[in-house]
Design a protein around this nucleic acid. Structure first.
Length: 614
RNA sequence: GCCACCGUAGCUUAGCUCGGAAGAGCGGCUGACUUGUAAUCAGCAGGUCGGGGGUUCGAAUCCCCCCGGUGGCUCCA
């Protein structure tokens, strides 16, 4: 709380018009107070508990000045981290009530544009400012956290349904699971190295830091943008095939909306805030808000369920702690495919949960991430486990490998069951990709209801699903995996359908650029991304550059090819083969079948491209 | 957010310990070469040494503050 004190001969103020929707109702527009202490007050975040101290401070000043009247004047402009309006009004009212015991108190209305005239006495003590700090909130949080930790139990479940103690499980065949368990439970690591994906995202000209923005807001170069767009296209199609309806919702929401507020209050801090005039909004951190508000207004019955709605939440914003931001692993602005499912009962919720679990496995496979490239975590409450033991075991059977289990005695979050697929990177850090949760709380919070067989309103269960996790994080996982491959002597690359350039044609000398263009057009027409390195450089140099770009097929074009009409193709990681154009196209078709396509994101002539980095 | 380390040309970096004229490779430009599967040769241009302050005759180098990045902690709805 910040207070500016003025010892005044008099103050007059008049309320002109409401500045915010939630302005107080008032009886008198014009007021005057003589011989008083005026306190201009900004109520700040976290000020709920500090009224007694504020009262002390104000009384101390009032006593010194020997005044009988105090004017409390809400004044937002002393602070840039204001409390929500309703909190501010509450605090001001409490101040008023407490001071009224000894003083005559007048309070200017909250939320109005007011004109005022003040006559400051001008003696040395007539102008003072104070800042009063609270700061108890954090401790409350950590208490809650400690409680959570006390009642959390960790296990490893094997496909036979056995629960093993995390300490006694034999990890020898599952080193990554061991790393994951360590990451989750103890969290001690001691590696000193740049995360490999950071260097790769820059070298390959995919993504980069943007010094002109806030930390964790990246720029994406054409090749990175292409991969991102393809990943998004693919996930979207999977989700639409799954039966979801695609929607679009705003990226910012009113702090004072009752449903949003109680949701936010459960998880304090961590949002970007946006001012629209004097009204405060927060940027979404997932698509939940918009979709829940939409479904609050929708009418539907048990006959239509399960209902799926989907949005690519671009962007979602979380104001993560600075020390937590790393390359593409953890960002402040990210792209979140977000599907919500409204299920009429737990049976339906479980059934859909399992289907989504299976979908997530397939989605990650499309990005070259197989079972074994990531670790599975399943988390639930003790009650849920008691009633659904077989269901949990069936999930573990499906992946046919040991899975980390976290069980809570009580429900701390909005869900009773959740799974994640966690990628373990070269620094032994875990990052969640796919996830699905069964939410038992938010239907009620948002007033989302369906009509049951008897025409009665019921709250549905809500599944939150991101089949891939954040798109940027998919990129991160692919890059980290490629680095692991290169460490094992394998040539790193993206799946062919995601390679920004799928075929590079290297003319031996200028004379063959014409033939190269013909070849390029022929393959382009069939839907592939082909370019030509027309630079005046040696063949080996151009091969080297193409290899550094991880291009899967390099076609050298010279006299031989012109005469024979066959192509000499250098296949990444598989030597040089001579084949016809149709054979190459057949191979490309096979490797990209069923995946979305996009055109080359760069000028087709390598000589015509800017260098985005070095 | 806290602690530690790092920041020199578009990129990778030498110089910093112990203060004394900022050096290279790649990339770019110009020219020569017309090339057959991971770097053709030569010349030229390119630097507020992350920013600000201090110490000093003199600071890339020593000290302080700030910004950015990374590691660890905390956190991760």
């Amino acid at each position: 709380m910040r207070i500016l004190f003025i010892h005044a001969d008099y103050i007059e103020f008049e309320s002109k018009e409401k500045a915010i929707k939630s302005a107080e109702e008032i009886s008198e527009k014009k007021e005057r107070c003589d011989e008083c202490l005026v306190a201009f007050i900004s109520v700040e975040e976290g000020d709920d508990g500090i009224v007694p101290r504020a009262v002390e401070e104000i009384e101390e000043v009032a006593e010194k000045l020997n005044v009988e009247r105090i004017v409390l004047y809400p004044y937002a402009h002393l602070s840039n981290r204001l409390a929500a309006p309703d909190v501010a009004v509450k605090v001001l009212k409490e101040l008023h009530a407490a001071l009224e015991e000894k003083y005559e108190v007048c309070r200017a209305p909250f939320g109005w544009y007011k004109s005022f005239v003040i006559s400051c006495k001008g003696h040395p003590l007539s102008e003072l400012s104070k800042e009063i700090r609270g700061g108890e909130k954090k401790e409350e949080e950590s208490e809650a956290l400690k409680a959570e930790k006390r009642t959390t139990y960790w296990y490893v479940m094997t496909p036979d349904g056995e629960m093993h103690s995390v300490d006694e499980f034999n990890y020898s065949s599952y080193p990554n699971l061991k790393k994951f368990v360590e990451y989750e439970i103890s969290g001690t690591r001691a590696v000193k190295q740049m995360p490999p994906h950071v260097e790769l995202m820059q070298k390959l000209e995919l993504a980069d830091y943007e010094p002109g923005s806030d930390s964790g807001n990246m720029r994406y170069y054409p090749k990175g943008k292409l991969i991102k767009a393809l990943v998004e296209d693919y996930v979207e199609r999977r989700v639409l095939d799954f039966g979801a309806m695609e929607v679009e919702t705003p990226i910012m929401y009113d702090f004072n909306h009752p449903s949003l507020k109680s949701y936010l209050n459960r998880f304090p801090a961590r949002q970007y805030q946006v001012l629209s005039g004097r009204d405060k909004y927060f940027l979404r951190f997932a698509a939940c808000f918009g979709q829940f508000l939409m479904m609050h207004d929708a009418t539907f019955s048990y006959r239509q369920m399960p209902i799926h709605i989907y949005e690519l939440a671009k962007y979602s914003f979380r104001r993560e702690q600075k020390g937590e931001l790393v390359g593409l692993r953890r960002l402040r602005a990210f792209t979140m495919p977000d599907m919500h499912t409204l299920a009429r009962d737990m049976e339906q919720a479980k059934e859909d949960f399992k289907k989504q679990y299976e979908m997530a496995i397939e989605v990650l496979r499309a990005f070259g991430l197989e079972l074994g490239d990531y670790e599975v975590a399943i988390r639930f409450t003790r009650d849920f486990y008691k009633n659904n033991k077989d269901f949990i075991v069936s999930l573990v059977k499906l992946v046919n490998r040991p899975v980390l289990i976290q069980m809570w005695d009580e429900r701390f979050f909005y869900f009773v069951l959740k799974f994640e697929f966690n990628f373990i990177d070269n620094m032994d850090k875990a990052a969640a990709l796919s996830t699905v949760q069964i939410d038992v709380e938010n239907a009620e919070r948002y007033g989302i209801t369906y009509y049951d067989e008897d025409g009665e309103k019921q709250y549905p269960y809500i599944l939150h699903c991101s089949p891939s996790g954040a798109v940027e994080r998919v990129l991160y996982a692919m890059l980290e995996k490629a680095y692991m491959d290169s460490q094992r002597g394998k040539k790193p690359m993206f799946p062919v359908w995601l390679s920004p350039v799928q075929v590079r044609i290297v003319p031996v000398k200028d004379d063959f650029v014409g033939c190269a263009i013909q070849e390029m057009y022929a393959m382009q027409k069939r839907g592939f991304r082909v370019d030509i390195d027309d630079r005046d450089l040696s063949v080996s140099r151009k091969i080297r550059d193409a290899e550094k770009e991880w291009i899967p097929y390099i076609v050298v074009m010279g006299e031989k090819e012109k005469k024979s009409g066959r192509l000499t193709v250098r296949i990444r990681g598989d030597g040089v083969k001579v084949m016809s154009r149709e054979e190459l196209i057949a191979r490309l078709n096979e490797e990209t079948a069923g995946y979305p396509r996009r055109p080359l994101p760069l000028p087709p002539m390598v000589s015509q491209r800017p260098k985005f980095r070095g």
